[in-house]
Simulated assay, not measured.
Amino acid sequence: MTVFSLMLVVFSLTTGEFVIAGILPDVAGDLTVSVPAAGLLVSAYALGMIVGGPVVTVATARLPRKTLVVGLVAVAVIGNLGSALAPNYSTLLLARFVAGLVVATFFAVAIATVVSIAEPGREASAVARVALGMNLGIIGGTPIGTVIGQHLGWRATFVSVALCATVALGLVLRFLPTMPVASSGSVLGELRVFTDRGVQLAIALTALGNVGVVTVFTYFTPLLTEVGGFATGVVPVLLLVYGAGAVLGNYLGGRLADKVPMSSLAGLLAALAGTLALFWVAADIQLLAVVLIFVLGALAFAIIPGMQTRVVGAAGAAPTLAVAVNASGFQLAAAFAGRIGGWVIDDGPGLRSIYPIAAVLTVTGLLLALHMLRRDREHVLESS
């Protein structure tokens, strides 16, 4: 039940983050703002994670882990309730920022914990098990939250997220055992980890490798309805298809990362870039688009275990802070995604062009992965 309680927290936080993709037009219409402006709600949440990752992790480094986890989940509940009650767009932006502040630190504590207790050589699979809650948030929470938003209003969606997180909080209080503090070293000692070139490259890979697919997912609903021609009522089903792909991709990505971490990561990024480019061509061929949605979900989540494990391995004695900052790197990609998509829609070549732009952005992550792979091989040759 300890693992389940943490998984349910991850499920709640993931649903709260990604469900905005399914209710974006509803939020925009109700608050009388444009869809690109509503897309900045994703950026606000991402900014909260970017700031909160290092700041909250350092500030709470001396807290016992159970106390820390309980406090983090409580803040997430407050942020989602604030989102539901927000009277205007500006307040909603602030509430999304608050909700995002604690997420990176929670993921970091959870991931660093499971990696520390995993069998040697099975670290990536352990990360994949934690990430299952994220997959379930995509496959179940996001479409369910979208349906709730479509029938009861987008505010009811955030109330539902807050209630789920509250249930998870109760389970954490009941089943999470007393654990040592998240960090036993000095803050300065932990911060020194970021002078390591390997850690810098690993965090940069997370940001560059994810920015393309996150840009597409941020504007998933208008892309599916306005470009793909799907009815609005079908969007939750398509999100379910995406989530099913995510579950499979998470499992396979963990297995591949255990065996050939950087080689598999480079291959997955190449496949992701190709899928995004193909979506540009075939977005309005609905049967093919459904297949591509599944593949996109699989590839988007197959790259995560390898990226997370790379950071933990490079960070050495300061994995919690490094993973938190790595989560911030992912959210930096999300923050840029909201802005890039808004520019493409308002001032750029138009909504459909998000697909090829996302493919090009993913290629930058691929190039970095290839550089890191070459660097690893050179290091092995020097050591032999």
Rank of each mutant, 00 (worst) to 15 (best):
S184R: 15
A110W: 00
R62Y: 13
A246I: 09
Q200D: 08
S43T: 11
T15D: 06
F18T: 07
V281N: 00
T178N: 07
F336V: 07
S264A: 15
G71P: 06
I78D: 06
G229S: 10
L191C: 07
R339M: 15
P180K: 06
V360T: 07
L13G: 09
T178Q: 13
A38I: 14
H151D: 06
A318W: 05
T275P: 03
A38C: 04
L299T: 05
T67L: 12
P36Y: 01
C164N: 02
V55T: 13
T215K: 02
R129F: 12
M262E: 14
G82F: 13
G229D: 13
L68P: 07
G209W: 09
A271T: 14
A369R: 10
V344I: 00
L296R: 01
V235N: 10
G189D: 08
G338S: 13
A300Q: 06
P305E: 14
V216L: 02
G145V: 03
T32E: 15
H151R: 12
G153D: 08
L13M: 14
D347V: 01
A59D: 13
A84G: 08
H371G: 08
D347E: 14
P356C: 00
L205S: 06
Y251C: 12
L239N: 06
A337N: 04
L24W: 08
P236R: 06
V360A: 05
L276C: 13
G82V: 12
V213T: 14
L292A: 03
A28I: 11
A282E: 12
A244L: 13
A131C: 15
L276G: 06
E226Q: 14
A112N: 10
N250S: 09
A270N: 12
I354W: 10
T206W: 04
V214Q: 00
A300V: 15
A266M: 06
G79M: 09
T57G: 12
L370R: 13
F230G: 13
L201T: 00
V161R: 01
V27F: 03
L169K: 13
R377H: 08
L101M: 04
N135M: 14
G79T: 05
T178E: 15
L367H: 10
P180V: 08
P143E: 06
G338A: 06
Y355P: 07
E378C: 04
V235C: 00
V127R: 02
P120A: 10
A315L: 07
M372N: 11
I144S: 14
A118E: 02
I303L: 08
F330I: 07
M262W: 14
Y242K: 12
D196R: 15
A322Y: 12
I20G: 03
G243C: 00
L176E: 11
T157V: 03
I304V: 14
V237M: 12
L366N: 01
I144W: 03
